[in-house]
Design a protein around this nucleic acid. Structure first.
Lengths: 191, 191
DNA sequence: TAATTAATTAGATGGCTATCTAGATGATTA
DNA sequence: TAATCATCTAGATAGCCATCTAATTAATTA
């Protein structure tokens, strides 16, 4: 399923940011960007213990940001710029970022919350004054009109009357939000 | 001083990565990238409490990743793509990244550590076999030759003899590391 | 073969922070 | 004016993680 792929991408991004969000690791990245270096050397440069640096390096290696090669009995670590570039590309495309998130978020949660308050059981209790809430209710109303079909104003009023007495306001808002369009007193659903 | 500027840049980068290195905040970024949203709406979408989302938003605002505008009594937050772009630019330039780090790292720390072991008091105790350590010692030796001046092989040997008996090995390594160059038995310091 | 050195693993600890609830603030509506 | 609603602040808590020391593994040198 597609959502799975997005969740993967979200995790990848998160992993990347967590890897970079530590002062020691960020410095390590900068240092191995200059030239490949051993654990020992990095430890001396950063004023950290060997195990700590080793820990950070294995973290960075797991994420794919550095790679190690053996030399004598040293492990020489160097930067993998391809990974850095690939990640940055995903961040820059806010569309990708949005989509990655969308897969793991219930985009209707807010609408449901609003509906539970204003339309608890099929009828509109009262019309929201808050723009965002009004939009949710009006969008729900719009789903009761078939796309492609043409309605007289009288037909529109009758349909709306099923949900709330003030059909005139509702009709006007449907037009305001560009969910219904009209010409010569004939209405139809937009989109 | 320049180092100050680099430290600033390092902090900026760290701040940015920390801001993005949290699942909730990353999702918020993705959601406001789609469209501006209120605290309330984000809380519903993410399944988090209002205060928690408010906390994250003020964090993101401090870092400059989102901005708020008041509407009715909502705070509507939206993404500041300029900040995102500016940050990404700095990450992509590994040179900048290196320089940012360099300002806050003692680049001679490793050399000092090696010197303390192999050249504790001005004389070379014994010649390192490890390449990286050998390099440190040989680079130090090279500083005892004046740039631009020409030395006979005999003169080179005499100088080296002050630091260790095996002047022949030292002379060879100086050439290997391209710190000294030679022609017709005349030596001079490179760079 | 014994000794040295680099790297890693294991386990412990202290500090940081994402989250919550409760309460305060400030704007809007009736 | 009273009531409602979104937001923010304060303070508490629980879980995560950067770091250390000690011990282990592995490679190299003498």
């Amino acid at each position: 399923m597609e959502a799975e792929l997005h969740r993967d991408k979200l995790d990848k991004l998160l992993e990347f940011f967590k890897a970079m969000a530590d002062e020691s690791r960020l410095k390590i990245i900068g240092l191995v960007a200059q030239q490949p270096r051993s654990v020992d050397e990095l430890a001396a440069l950063l004023g950290l213990s060997g195990p700590t640096v080793s820990h950070h390096l294995s973290y960075l290696q797991r994420v794919g940001l550095v790679e190690a090669r053996a030399q004598q009995y040293y492990s020489i670590y160097s930067l993998r710029t391809e990974t850095l570039h690939a990640m940055v590309k995903d961040i820059l495309s806010t569309k990708k970022l949005s989509r990655a998130v969308t897969g793991d978020v219930d985009l209707d949660a807010y609408a449901r919350k609003v509906m539970a308050v204003y339309v608890p059981d099929g009828k509109i209790e009262h019309i929201p004054t808050q723009l965002k809430k009004l939009e949710v209710v009006v969008r729900w109303l719009a789903t009761h009109f078939e796309p492609g079909r043409r309605y007289t104003e009288k037909q529109v009023n009758e349909i709306l009357l099923e949900y709330h007495e003030d059909f005139a306001t509702l009709r006007r808002e449907l037009v305001n939000f560009h969910l219904l369009d009209r010409k010569n007193n004939i209405y139809w659903r937009v989109k």
